[in-house]
Amino acid sequence: MVAQMLAGRLHVTDRALRVETVPVPEPGHGQVRIRVAAAGVCLSDVHLIDGTLTPLYLPDDVVTLGHEVAGVIDALGEGVQGWQPGQRVLLQAGERDRRGTVLTRGVDYDGGWAEYALARQDTVVPIPDDLPFEQACIIPDAVSTPWAAVTDTARTRAGEAVAVWGVGGLGAHAVQLLRLVGAAPVIAVDPLPAARERALALGADTVLDPGEVTFRDAVRELTGGRGLDVAFDFAGVTAVREQALTVLGRRGRLVLAGIANKPVTIASDSPFNYFQQAVLGHYGSEAEHVEQLVGLARAGRLDLAGSVSDVLPLAEAAEAVRRVESKQGDPIRLILRP
């Protein structure tokens, strides 16, 4: 008799999320199977369900969601080397195929909203015993995306003045990470008072309401009149981009980490060119960023305890999606536990 498990499956044709019983997958050549201990619920999961996002490379019309996954190795496929059952691991959020195409876990192939998940052996990352699964699972994407934006796309240097618009699942971690690399001041910008309070707790030097009429003057004062070296849009809102461009300094960079699916407008090329400013697109992260963050957590430099807003059983995946979509409780990350 084939072993069965629960899985949170998106039926793409009718955009329906169903927690259903499916066969436990068997690892193929070069794959490991993990017993999932924790899986994050991301806004992109919500967008897959509501139709804002659509899988590009999914061979079928059904997929198990979940690209933020951690657990214990349960079984090894043929040819797997260097791994043993019982090891604590997290899974990279995706992999490259032979042509170099990036395939995303839980989007283009089955992810971790399930009791068991498969992973190619080169997408498995060991985690220390003292890093809880609920924290480890969100490192791919929720933490690695802002880390890559801060360190690679923006090339943020110590002492640079920075601001983060949108202190949600990604922006909250950006605040922590910018402080970690020595940016100063770190300014958090959000219209929600609770989000601004959270930003202060996470290490922001100051917080601002983007709706205040004195906003631009406040940024100039906080930066000694020079403006921002880097502005990060983690909100994906047109008004954020427009506002951020008005407070960039000389050689200032605006990093678009949020996706608005709207045009990016530069009001006037004259000051933009004169001050040699730049608008930089950002998406996701690479395997090395996840490994760097695990190393930082192992060294005690990165504390993600405050990022886990709540833990729900896998059977309540639909409720977790509803809470993320409605922003109930203003969560950083909700976690599913099989």
Score class of each variant (00 low, 15 high):
129 D>Y: 05
144 S>F: 03
288 E>C: 15
53 L>P: 08
318 A>P: 08
161 A>K: 01
202 L>R: 09
272 F>S: 06
227 G>I: 05
81 Q>V: 15
149 A>R: 02
332 I>G: 04
119 A>F: 04
153 T>D: 04
202 L>C: 05
298 R>C: 10
27 P>E: 02
144 S>H: 04
151 T>F: 02
69 V>G: 09
93 A>Y: 11
152 D>C: 12
54 T>I: 11
13 T>H: 15
85 P>L: 07
286 E>S: 13
44 S>P: 08
47 H>M: 14
122 D>I: 07
282 H>F: 07
98 R>G: 08
162 V>E: 00
267 A>H: 13
258 G>C: 09
118 L>C: 05
110 D>H: 09
70 A>H: 11
46 V>L: 04
199 A>K: 03
158 A>R: 08
33 R>P: 07
222 L>F: 11
222 L>P: 08
144 S>W: 02
197 E>D: 13
71 G>P: 08
246 T>Q: 13
81 Q>R: 13
76 L>V: 05
177 L>D: 00
271 P>L: 06
99 R>L: 13
63 V>R: 01
244 A>H: 09
283 Y>M: 15
213 V>H: 12
327 K>R: 13
133 F>P: 03
33 R>H: 09
142 A>R: 03
66 G>F: 03
13 T>Y: 13
88 R>E: 08
289 H>R: 07
207 V>K: 04
100 G>P: 14
183 A>T: 00
12 V>E: 09
10 L>N: 03
305 A>I: 05
74 D>A: 05
113 W>S: 01
256 L>S: 13
15 R>M: 10
325 E>V: 12
273 N>A: 15
302 L>E: 06
